[in-house]
Design a binder for these strands. Sequence first.
DNA 1: AAACTAACTGCAAGTAGCTTGCAATTAGTC
DNA 2: GACTAATTGCAAGCTACTTGCAGTTAGTTT
Lengths: 131, 131
Amino acid sequence: MQIKELLQEKKIKATKPRYKIASVLAQSSAPMSLDEIENVCDDIDFSSIYRTIKLFLQKGMVTEHYFGEKKAKYHFHNESNHNHFIKCLKCGKLEEIKNVCIIDEVNKKTAFKIIDHYMEFTGLCPDCSKN
Amino acid sequence: MQIKELLQEKKIKATKPRYKIASVLAQSSAPMSLDEIENVCDDIDFSSIYRTIKLFLQKGMVTEHYFGEKKAKYHFHNESNHNHFIKCLKCGKLEEIKNVCIIDEVNKKTAFKIIDHYMEFTGLCPDCSKN
DNA sequence: AAACTAACTGCAAGTAGCTTGCAATTAGTC
DNA sequence: GACTAATTGCAAGCTACTTGCAGTTAGTTT
């Protein structure tokens, strides 16, 4: 789906900053922090990036994660992307894990009504486990 | 295991602040933030709590988590505790999920060598899903 | 297509949650 | 009980957001 149509669908006024931030996030396979977005969009003020991301979060366009760090990272949300990542202890690389589903098992173990979930795995990527 | 013996085993000088912080964490089933610890240990300076927690982290006595928040929470680590939590969207209550294991499945899906993992589920606890 | 206006942006100042330097204090050894 | 290296409290500093406000802009109305 094109960014323009997505913003229309979500009833978000399509300003230049929003268009650019959405494009950058949509094209990044790895979750990005606010200042990583700022580095790419150096013509946009940090506070505007911050407010745009908050808006995208409310609209369900991005998800927010803390990969064992105090800095939040944001990931463009779509059907094919299920928000399970694995992070390399050595180089910090984040990679998505697809088709892993544990919801049914968790549902059996708890009386909570599960609405969302998030998993984080840490290890060594193939390159780092060699050396 | 007694706190005193644990500190000895980890070769940590058993000062009063450390003893108290370890006791508080060991007795709490829910992960605690630094200022939640400070509220209970109001005679201990915040910076000492901070440094003690960093030490406990290095020694593998506690684990650090961000439950979709920018504030870190710390959880006493032991064999019976496997670090999978579920958080109520409405009241924020955190509850531990036991005996959920997905590591084998993730191992099949990725070339990473998995060293640690962490899962977070969000939903409504039984009380909150009633109202 | 120019005027209108409600929403958005940049700038600057403010806050929360950590993080560190240093002098006074203390646990564990001698 | 004296010694000393490690730990603590205090205060200052830093990082990552967060907010108020006046100028600007997208989308509608004329």
